Amino acid sequence: MSYFILGRVAIGGVPLPLCSFRIPAGFPSPAADHIEQQISLDEVLNIRAPHVYLASISGDSMQGAGIFDGDLAVVDRSIEPVHGHIVVALLNNEPVCKRLCVRGREVILLSENPKYPPRYVLEGDDLAIWGVITSSVRSHV
């Protein structure tokens, strides 16, 4: 799985309406009288922060975690990566999106698709973690 960094989001996002109820699948459309407030997705996803960037994901190795080919990942560089986080990393100059597994001094990058084996980070490997994925956005069209 690889990704493409899209860059920082421009300041001044557009506020969108937020409905005051959850919409069950199949509900035709929310009525205007149920709109509770205006929200901005860049504020909800915290993508205005200077330590946050967006990356486009490619491949199917993280589909078990709900991250699919073409998804847009919100990556936060300020979060200290720990065991269990999904991270964007550079392993031997290859960008990857994997689940971080730390067992003592052993570091493993795990796919969330059984088709792909775990990647053990060995002594001679060069690993740099570029951030923790906090959210992902998927287009359905």
Rank of each mutant, 00 (worst) to 15 (best):
P95Q: 02
D60Q: 11
V82P: 06
G66R: 04
S40R: 09
Q38L: 10
Y53F: 15
L100T: 07
C19T: 14
D76T: 04
G13W: 09
M62Y: 12
A89M: 06
V102T: 09
A32M: 14
K98A: 05
G64V: 08
L41G: 03
S56A: 12
G66E: 05
I11V: 11
R77M: 05
E36C: 01
Q63N: 12
L16D: 09
P50V: 13
S56C: 09
V14N: 11
L45S: 02
L72P: 00
H83L: 02
N92T: 04
I35C: 02
A65H: 13
F21M: 11
V88A: 09
S40H: 04
G70D: 10
H83C: 06
K98V: 02
E43G: 08
G64M: 14
D71F: 00
E94Q: 13
N92R: 01
D42H: 07
A55Q: 07
A65R: 11
A10R: 15
G13V: 02
P95Y: 04
P17L: 06
A10P: 08
R8P: 01
V87S: 04
G13C: 03
S58H: 13
I86E: 01
D69T: 06
I23Q: 09
P15F: 06
L41M: 10
F27N: 09
P24N: 12
E43Y: 00
I35E: 02
I86Q: 04
N46A: 13
A73K: 03
H51K: 10
G59I: 07
P95E: 03
A55L: 07
L72G: 07
S78N: 09
C97E: 00
D60I: 03
H34R: 15
A49K: 15
Q38M: 12
A55M: 08
C97M: 12
N92A: 06
R105G: 07
L100G: 07
R22L: 11
Q63M: 15
